[in-house]
């Protein structure tokens, strides 16, 4: 009996709830630790980034306007779908994969619970010195770009992405360059999670090619990144000079540490606090 020839899958991009190939027609080979070819992923282009931002911006308002209760349930559903793909994800991560997947799922659970609590914890009424009712509410800011670290490929990405969407934003994510496969598996979990198509868009490709396009895209109002080089950090911060992007870049962070990676502080940079005044005198 001859040995079975395995199928080598080509992972596609995830844009607007669909799985297109890159418009550029380019792919990248992915090898395992023994240098065996295990898959291909798409090598996204500038046009793919633009398509993804467009898809995200189109659906962001719908997502932000969903009730906080519903958004919480949808994120919980995402955790359920990841749990179903637990072994596949762990296998794609390699050594230590199960621990990482568990931490990533738990992180989703953590932020799923914030959707209907964050506005109470970080908003509130302001006791102004006058006859006014005055209150502050956080609102989603729009579409945010995420540059995931190389490692931990899945947990790093999830930690950067979930606070953004929990706050009602949409995002465009550039996956770990070193191991993009877990991200592309995650896209399959997202597609079945009830998240409206386009709230999360996942791209694989090279940071050297794409970071610039994230930085300069005027429809992106925020950037959340970790594990980027000094040159890329500067490039991303230059986006602030272009359209006042809100840029947050984490360094020296242990994504396995809940104390560092949980809490409302992860959502603060991706909301706009709106303060509303109304006279309360007759």
């Amino acid at each position: 009996m001859s040995e079975r020839i395995p199928i080598i899958k080509t992972y596609k991009l995830a844009i607007g709830g669909k799985f297109p190939r890159t418009e550029s027609g380019r792919t990248i080979e992915v090898h395992d630790s023994a240098q065996n070819l295990i898959a291909h992923v798409c090598r996204a282009s500038r046009k793919d980034v633009r398509n993804a931002v467009e898809a995200a911006s189109k659906v962001q308002g719908t997502w932000a306007n969903a009730t906080a209760y519903l958004r919480g349930q949808v994120l919980y559903r995402l955790a359920e779908m990841m749990e179903g793909k637990r072994l596949e994800l762990a296998h794609a991560i390699g050594a230590g994969g199960e621990r990482e997947v568990d931490a990533a799922i738990d992180r989703v659970i953590h932020f799923a619970g914030w959707t209907d609590k964050y506005p109470q914890v970080m908003g509130g009424t302001n006791p102004v010195a006058g006859p006014y009712h005055n209150f502050t509410i956080p609102f989603a800011m729009g579409t945010v770009g995420v540059i995931a670290p190389d490692e931990p490929a899945l947990l790093g990405l999830v930690s950067l992405m979930v606070p953004i969407i929990a706050a009602g934003n949409a995002c465009v994510v550039l996956a770990s360059e070193k191991n993009p496969v877990p991200t592309m598996i995650l896209s399959e979990a997202i597609a079945t999670s009830d998240l409206p198509g386009g709230v999360v868009n996942l791209l694989s490709g090279y940071r050297d090619e794409l970071v610039e396009h994230f930085s300069l895209h005027r429809e992106l109002i925020g950037i959340h990144a970790s594990g980027v080089s000094e040159a890329h950090r500067t490039l991303l911060r230059l986006g602030s000079a272009d359209n006042l992007k809100r840029v947050t870049i984490h360094e020296d962070i242990d994504f396995f540490d809940d104390a560092q990676c949980e809490g409302p502080g992860w959502m603060d940079p991706f909301v706009e606090f709106k303060t509303i005044w109304h006279p309360s005198a007759v």
Binding site: A129, N134, M141, R246, F273, K274, I276, W277, P279
Partner: peptide
């Protein structure tokens, strides 16, 4: 808009956060 005045305008208070959306800053 970061500040919305309803039936009033240009009121300020130390307890009331002030700042903008988009290119009005962060």
């Amino acid at each position: 808009a970061g500040i919305v005045w309803l039936n009033t305008y240009n009121k300020f208070d130390p307890t009331s956060p002030f700042g903008g959306y988009k290119e009005s800053g962060f």
